[in-house]
Design a binder for these strands. Structure first.
Lengths: 66, 66
DNA sequence: GAATTATGTAAAGCGCGCTTGACATTGCCG
DNA sequence: CGGCAATGTCAAGCGCGCTTTACATAATTC
């Protein structure tokens, strides 16, 4: 699974630290997601998508077999 | 977080066991999700929504604070 | 009433999502 | 150049998502 977090965050000029604070997770969690270290929980995925005013499927890109 | 899995599954006349097999998880996982015992991973949530031809947000209902 | 089908649920175990704390790297700005 | 801001990443620890195994219950069918 890939995601567009970094792309969208940069478009809006937000720092990882501020996004993390808004999402109520640690900065390392945002960094890990952007760098594909692991997948978010569905709650965090929803929080991020909602914060961007998008759906989960618009922010997170699922591969065929997933 | 609530979900409409049981409702949609019943509309389509599918058994938990068959849905589980299609989603490649155990029957207990489907039962646990329907009964709100825990939240699915984002991958499983996507697989279920895609199987139903819906988005994650159409199948899973997020509370305000989430 | 006995057997079968569909579902609920409990327990134990494994791996992942997320945490805190710490340190490294990169890049910009004085 | 020196310093600070933004990001990357590692390690240890905790709780949850999902597994397998097992048993219970309700409804249907013979």
């Amino acid at each position: 699974m890939k995601n567009r977090i970094e792309e969208i965050r940069n478009q809006r000029g937000i720092r990882q630290e501020d996004l993390a604070r808004q999402m109520q997770v640690s900065r390392q969690t945002i960094s890990s997601l952007e760098n594909g270290r692991y997948n978010p929980s569905i709650l965090l995925a929803h929080r991020i998508a909602a914060y961007f005013g998008m759906t989960i499927e618009e922010v997170f890109i699922f591969d065929e077999e997933e």
